[in-house]
């Protein structure tokens, strides 16, 4: 479904701020894979997602989604294949627009937008049903401006929007990191349900090792711009946080450099 070959990206080349964010990364996701991605700060996790999303072009290497080479495709065209949820709950929705308008825009991702009514009557009913599945009471607030929702509600809504039209790949970039633990757990629960129900191929970045182990069928660990650990299936199910920390030390020769990841 996703095939990344020898991907390189260096930011600010030739300056003292030079930073090699991706250093020959290879990744191949099978249809229906739910992959969790962990790694310390600056390991290249978010860079990887931004590369797939097309926020900027890589220096070298190719990205294929479902057999299509998207390496040079602009971000808004690539969006047809992708569903994205950001770390910042403010980033995934338009605050000054209604819930139903946000959903309607997402429902047309990857389709040609025309000069016809932007939200059709039949859609409202459909969105109401979709929102009911979140169990947050949003189904009765269709015309509420999204800016009035809490961070958790906005993140759940973004998740719903990202999963519309069954994207080839769902990308979650630490989408629960900015939420309180209870809300984070709820959003993760919704994530699991949406991914399973729609059989979505998913890439979920997380800082939380427990979450990385508890969710998905495959886990990868990044360090210094490439993948250092890649486990799946039964082997992944048996992992513990301690195993992961040991694997990290083995791969990098250093202690795991993110307090946040260990503590959470």
């Amino acid at each position: 479904m996703l095939k990344i070959t020898d991907l390189h990206k260096t930011f600010n080349p030739g300056t003292i701020n030079e930073k090699t964010a991706l250093d020959g990364l290879n990744l191949h996701l099978k249809d229906g894979d739910f992959v969790t991605v962990i790694g310390g700060n600056g390991a290249g996790k978010s860079t990887l997602q931004n590369a797939i999303a097309g926020v900027w072009k890589p220096d070298y290497g190719t990205i294929e989604i479902d057999g299509v080479d998207v390496t040079h495709m602009p971000e808004h065209q690539r969006a047809a294949f992708l569903g994205r949820v950001f770390q910042d709950p403010m980033k995934g929705t338009a605050p000054d627009m209604e819930i139903v308008e946000n959903l309607a825009i997402a429902a047309r991702r990857g389709k040609k937008r025309k000069l016809v009514w932007g939200v059709r009557k039949a859609e409202r009913e459909e969105y109401k049903r979709l929102l009911e599945t979140l169990d947050l009471g949003l189904e009765n607030r269709l015309t509420t401006k999204v800016g009035l929702l809490s961070g958790g509600q906005r993140q759940a809504l973004t998740l719903l929007m990202a999963s519309m039209n069954k994207p080839k790949l769902l990308m979650l970039d630490e989408h629960t990191a900015a939420l309180d633990p209870k809300t984070a757990a709820k959003v993760l629960e919704i994530t699991d349900r949406i991914v399973t129900e729609n059989k979505l191929t998913t890439l979920m970045i997380t800082h939380n090792m427990k979450d990385a182990i508890a969710h998905g069928n495959r886990l990868i660990m990044m360090y210094d711009g490439h993948i250092v650990v890649d486990v799946e299936g039964e082997e992944k199910k048996k992992l513990t946080v301690e195993d992961l920390l040991n694997m990290f030390v083995q791969a990098s020769g250093k202690e795991f450099a993110s307090d946040r990841a260990i503590l959470s």
């Binding site: 808004h76 338009a94 308008e101 997402a106 025309k114």
Partner: peptide, 27 residues
């Protein structure tokens, strides 16, 4: 116009360009 499919994306472009791009809008 601003309540058509195109018009809504014009609003979202100003409201949140990141969200718009992620939803396939040519900002």
């Amino acid at each position: 116009f601003f309540y058509t499919e195109v018009g809504l994306t014009l609003k979202s472009t100003g409201d949140n360009p990141d969200m718009s791009r992620a939803q396939g809008v040519n900002v």
